[in-house]
Nucleic acid binder design. Sequence first.
DNA 1: GGGCTTTTCCCCCACATGGGGGAGGCGCGT
DNA 2: ACGCGCCTCCCCCATGTGGGGGAAAAGCCC
Lengths: 215, 215
Amino acid sequence: MSEGIGVLLADDEDLIRTGLRIIIESEPGLSVVGEAADGAAAVSLARSLRPDVVLMDVRMPAVDGIQATRALTVAEGAPKVLVVTTLENDDYVYEALRAGASGFLLKRARADELVQAIRVVAAGESLLFPAAIRSLVAARGAARAVPGIGRLTTREGDVLRLMARGLSNAEIAAELVVGTETVKTHVGNVLAKLGARDRTQAVVAAYESGFVSPR
Amino acid sequence: MSEGIGVLLADDEDLIRTGLRIIIESEPGLSVVGEAADGAAAVSLARSLRPDVVLMDVRMPAVDGIQATRALTVAEGAPKVLVVTTLENDDYVYEALRAGASGFLLKRARADELVQAIRVVAAGESLLFPAAIRSLVAARGAARAVPGIGRLTTREGDVLRLMARGLSNAEIAAELVVGTETVKTHVGNVLAKLGARDRTQAVVAAYESGFVSPR
DNA sequence: GGGCTTTTCCCCCACATGGGGGAGGCGCGT
DNA sequence: ACGCGCCTCCCCCATGTGGGGGAAAAGCCC
C-alpha cells in the first residue's frame, strides 16, 4: 500500500460504497484499496490486501459485520475496523466493540467527520460518535434481569462466581474451604433459583445478567 | 427531596467529599442529600434517602464502587450512578457500565463539567468523558486472546456458540442437524484447542475472549 | 492422483455432575 | 422459646460429559 492510509470498503449497497469511495479518494493521504459486498469477502480481501482501516457495515449478507470484525481482529497486525451503520438506535455498538472494532460511526456523518474518523483510528486511537455512546451506555440496561439472580444468598453468589471462572465442584470446595458435598448443595440451589439445567446454563446466565463481567 | 436534583456522595476521602459538596451546594438546583465513606453505606443510604444521582468513587473500602453500583441499579426506581475516579487509564470503565452506571467521570474534571455531568445523567441521558471512551474501547483489546480460539474451524465455532448459549450436546445436534456423536467430536476438539477441561471452561473462554458477547 | 483438513459417525469406559432424599448447627427476628 | 433461613455435610443413583481409540466421505491444495 506504499503511502498513505489504505481503506477497504465493506458494504452490500453499491451506492454507499460509491459515495464512500468518492469521499475517500478525494482526500489526500487516503485511498480505497478494495471493496467487498459481504462479510466473507471483506475478511478474505482484508487478509490479502492488508488495508490500514476497514469501513465495515453492520448488516451484510452471508457474514454480518460483527462476525467479520471478530474474524479480522483476532489475527496479528489486523487492520483497524471502523463500524458504520445507518441505525442510530443501535444495539450492535456494544457487540461491535467486543468484537474488536476501534470505533463506531453513523452513515449520516458528514464527509469531513468520516475522514477524520478514519485518520483517528488509523493512528491507533479510539473513537465513538456521541449517538453511539448513548446506545452503548444504554446497552448496559439491556442486561437481561435473570429472575432469581437477586435471590441468591451470599454463599450461593460466591459459588456462582467461581463456577463462572470454570472451576469444578472440587476446586470450588477447596477455594471456599468447605466439603464438596456442600458445594454440590449450593450449586443445586443456584441452578434451581436461576432456572438453569446445568452449570453451563448458570454461567451463561451469570454473564448475560451482568452478575459477572468478562474481565 | 422536594425540589431540584438530590445528590449522594460516595467517596472514602473526606477532602474529596468536601470539595464535591461545596461545588454542588453552590449550584442552584443541586443539593447534597447525604454522604457515604464506603460502598455498603452508599447502598443503604441511597435506599433510604433516594437521591436522584449518586457520585460513586470506584475504589472504596469494604464494598467497592462497582459492587455498590450493581447493588443499587438492580432495584426499581434506582438512582442514576455517576462513577468517579482519579485514574485516567482505568479498566473499571467497562465493568462500571456493565454494573449499571449511567456515566463515567474523572476527578480532575472542572467544576462546571461536574455540574453538567450531574444534570445530564439526572435527565436520563448517558455520558462518557473522552478519556473514558478511550479506555472503554481499549478494554475490548483487553479481551484475553485465548490461544487457539482463532484455530477453530467454522463448525467448531458453531458448536462453541451454541455451547455458550447453554445447549446440551443433544440440543446442539438437533440445532445443527447432525448426530450427537458428531457434536461430541466437535466439542472435544474445541476443548482441546481452547485448553479447556470441560464445557464450562470453554464457555468462559468464549465470553472472556469476546468470541461471544452478553446479548 | 496423493496428501491434507474438515466433517461426519461409531465403540468403550471412567467420572463429575445433578436430582432425590435427610440432618445437624447457627444466627436472627418475633 | 420457637420458627425460619442459611450453611454445612451425608447417602443413593441415573446420566450427561469427556477421553481413548477408529473410520469413512467430501473438499481442497499442490
